[in-house]
């Protein structure tokens, strides 16, 4: 009986994780693509020193995202960890997080009429570090120097 309840709750969590997770992912990618188009003119540069003249002022801009993995993805990853290979289920999650962090940074830059952001860096940190049986969540932080021209 105990095993049966365990199996049912596992299936419910898997199905819920898959349905909500894939719905959220589709919706998020749609939004990401649309906003990337919107902020395409806020130029992102990894260079440390700006190559623009007439700089009015510069300012630190940042975008931060905290994401959590769903049950389905976590189970898939735990199976994958037995045999090795690409963790596809986590890759899409982190891809979304990085792009979302950049978009939030771009929005901040755009709000102050900046034309570009230089010296972009990423930070990633795990929030549920090393805790067994906890759903993993991580933060992705993107930051850079916004250049506001005249």
């Amino acid at each position: 009986m105990e095993n049966f309840i365990g199996l049912i709750s596992f299936l419910v969590l898997m199905i819920a994780g898959y349905l909500f997770g894939s719905y959220a992912e589709r919706k998020h990618y749609k939004s990401i693509l649309q906003r990337e188009e919107q902020y395409r003119n806020v130029v992102l540069m990894a260079l440390r020193l700006p190559r623009v003249s007439h700089v009015e002022h510069t300012q630190l801009v940042s975008g931060s995202v905290v994401i959590s993995v769903d049950y389905f993805k976590r189970f898939l990853a735990s199976l994958r960890m037995l045999v090795g290979g690409r963790l596809n289920s986590y890759e899409s999650l982190l891809d979304r997080a990085r792009r979302e962090a950049i978009l939030r940074m771009q929005k901040q830059a755009s709000d102050m009429n900046a034309s570009s952001v230089y010296n972009i860096k990423f930070e990633t940190s795990s929030i549920s570090k090393g805790q067994k049986d906890r759903v993993g969540s991580i933060e992705v932080l993107a930051y850079g120097t916004a250049i506001v021209g005249k």
Binding site: Y18, S22, F72, L76, N88, S89, D95, R96
Partner: peptide, 27 residues
């Protein structure tokens, strides 16, 4: 200096395929 960001092709950093296929194969 570029005037806008390039359009980066999808499917490089994250492969978009049905996770059920992977689940079935792995299990």
């Amino acid at each position: 200096m570029p005037s806008q960001n390039p359009v980066i092709p999808e499917g490089i950093n994250a492969v978009r395929e049905n996770p059920f296929k992977e689940l079935l194969l792995l299990t």
